[in-house]
Amino acid sequence: MAPTAYRHPLACSHASEPGAPAAHVDLLAALVNGDFTTPDFLTPRPESPQPRIRDELNGVVNLPTTSILKELDALWDGHLPQALRGPGWSVRSRVIEAIEHYWSHSFARFWVEHRSILAADIQYRATQMAAHGLAGALETLSPHVRLAVDQLTAVSRVGTSYAASLSGRDLVFVPSFFTLGASYPVDPTGPPMVIYPARGQRSTSAQPAPTGARGGHNLLSASRADLLGMLDGPTTTRELAASLGKTEQAVNQQLQALRTSGMVEASRSGRCVLYRRTEVGEDLLRMVRAHPAADHPIVEPVHLAGPHV
Rank of each mutant, 00 (worst) to 15 (best):
D73F: 09
T140Q: 12
R277W: 04
F173N: 09
A83N: 08
L72I: 11
E97V: 15
P3D: 05
F173R: 10
V25C: 11
A30S: 14
L57S: 05
L28G: 01
T43Y: 09
S167A: 10
A120D: 14
Y102N: 15
Y162L: 01
L231C: 00
E282S: 13
E17C: 07
V186P: 00
L227F: 00
T236Y: 01
T235A: 01
T37R: 15
Q207F: 14
V61L: 14
R271T: 11
A293Q: 10
V251N: 03
V273R: 05
S167H: 10
H8P: 01
G262L: 04
L27T: 02
L255A: 04
R224T: 05
L42E: 10
A213I: 07
A20D: 01
P191T: 11
A198S: 15
E100N: 15
T4R: 10
T189S: 14
M1P: 04
T66M: 06
S221R: 09
L304F: 03
S176P: 04
P297D: 12
E282H: 10
H24W: 01
F107D: 09
V273E: 03
M1A: 08
V149L: 05
G59A: 12
H14D: 04
E239G: 00
R146K: 11
R157H: 09
Q50N: 08
